[in-house]
């Protein structure tokens, strides 16, 4: 696959390409759903800037924990969309040999460790991963992605408290996408933001426009540098929006259309494209070529996944124990 992974020195076009790859991947899943029965997936459409902005600020030695809405984080980190789709489809070529499905894909060689779809599970595991970094040496930091819903779990508070008391290098990244499954965060949170919940634990925080990839990246570079330097936690909140329903097949009948409309106007991909065009960094034809390349790569990935074999039935109960 010819797609490159954005690194700390990435250009805006590389950031755009990374977002387009995520969008194309999620749209492929939507298309699979439209075509017939397909496993449930929580897509990250609309949240590409948060994923690419943060992950592009990381180094190879850093580690990532994530949740059920993880495709953007994985793809931004350089995961092979073919092996991801294969995992979603339960094929033996998937990253977890078809045992995870869409919800818990981890890729050890990319430092994407311990994806949990127990809401808050990633928060419970992150301090331990950072403890390993702290005790076994190395410069790496641990990034933990979670949602605004997870911040309402008790474990969020336990995690921040422990990471602070033990001085653990965790960059907590809350993607506040306004929704917690079928409930708006206004019904479950006093105040709009999660970032202020860091201060009582002695943790610095920042809220950033999560639909502006350049702002997210700048904030993440700052936050990651601080974690690297101080070996202490930091909480970055990306203010963003889940453009599709909680999971596929898509349903947003319970969402105020005005809210959707307002956020669609802030679509992270369109925003960056408009900026690039306005500043003469590329032409419409260049953009079309990037879109086409993303779609081509994902078509190829889908072909790989759909033609991959299912795991052998003899694999059912193997590898439960080490």
């Amino acid at each position: 696959m010819s797609l490159s992974t954005p690194q700390p020195g990435s250009t805006r076009l590389e950031l755009l390409a990374a977002m387009l790859r995520i969008r194309a991947y999620e749209e492929k899943i939507v298309a699979f759903h439209a075509a017939g029965p397909f496993p449930n997936v929580c897509t990250s459409v609309g949240q590409e800037a948060a994923a690419v902005g943060v992950v592009s600020a990381l180094r190879a030695e850093d580690q990532i924990l994530t949740n059920h809405r993880s495709a953007g984080h994985l793809l931004a980190r350089g995961a092979d969309p073919g092996r991801m789709l294969a995992e979603v489809m339960g094929r033996s070529t998937g990253y977890c040999r078809g045992r995870s499905g869409t919800l818990h894909i981890s890729v050890k060689e990319l430092g994407v460790v311990l994806t949990s779809t127990i809401v808050g599970g990633e928060l419970s595991l992150a301090p331990g991963v950072a403890l390993s970094r702290a005790m076994l040496g190395g410069e790496g930091i641990v990034v933990c992605f979670f949602g605004d819903g997870a911040a309402c779990e008790g474990i969020f508070h336990e995690s921040l408290n422990l990471a602070s008391v033990w001085n653990l290098p965790v960059l907590y990244v809350c993607e506040n996408n306004q929704w917690q499954a079928f409930v708006h965060r206004k019904e479950t949170m006093v105040g709009d933001h999660v970032a202020p919940w860091a201060a009582p634990y002695g943790i610095d925080s920042l809220t950033v426009d999560g639909n502006d990839v350049e702002s997210v990246r700048k904030a993440a570079l700052h936050a990651a540098a601080q974690v690297r330097e101080t070996r202490r936690p930091f909480l970055l909140e990306a203010w963003t929006y889940r453009q599709r329903g909680h999971m596929e097949p898509h349903d947003q009948s319970y969402v105020d259309p005005a809210e959707i409309e307002a956020w669609m106007a802030k679509d992270p991909i369109s925003r960056l494209e408009a900026r690039l065009l306005a500043e003469g960094e590329c032409t419409t034809a260049d953009l079309e070529a990037l879109h086409a390349e993303a779609r081509r790569a994902i078509d190829e990935a889908a072909e790989f996944a759909s033609t991959s074999p299912y795991p052998d039935l003899s694999d059912l109960a193997t590898g439960v124990y080490a």
Binding site: Q63, L65, V113, L114, G121, L123, S124, L125, A126, P127, G128, V129, A130, L131, S132, R133, M135, L136, G154, I155, E158, S159, N161, L162, V165, W166
Partner: peptide
């Protein structure tokens, strides 16, 4: 004190931290 630690009174994060640490080398 690095290897023998007191923790906050929070069993979830104690066990979760153990799991995260175990998965990554401790």
């Amino acid at each position: 004190p690095q290897r023998v630690r007191n923790t906050p009174l929070a069993e979830g994060i104690i066990a979760g931290t153990a799991a995260g640490a175990a998965a990554t080398g401790l």
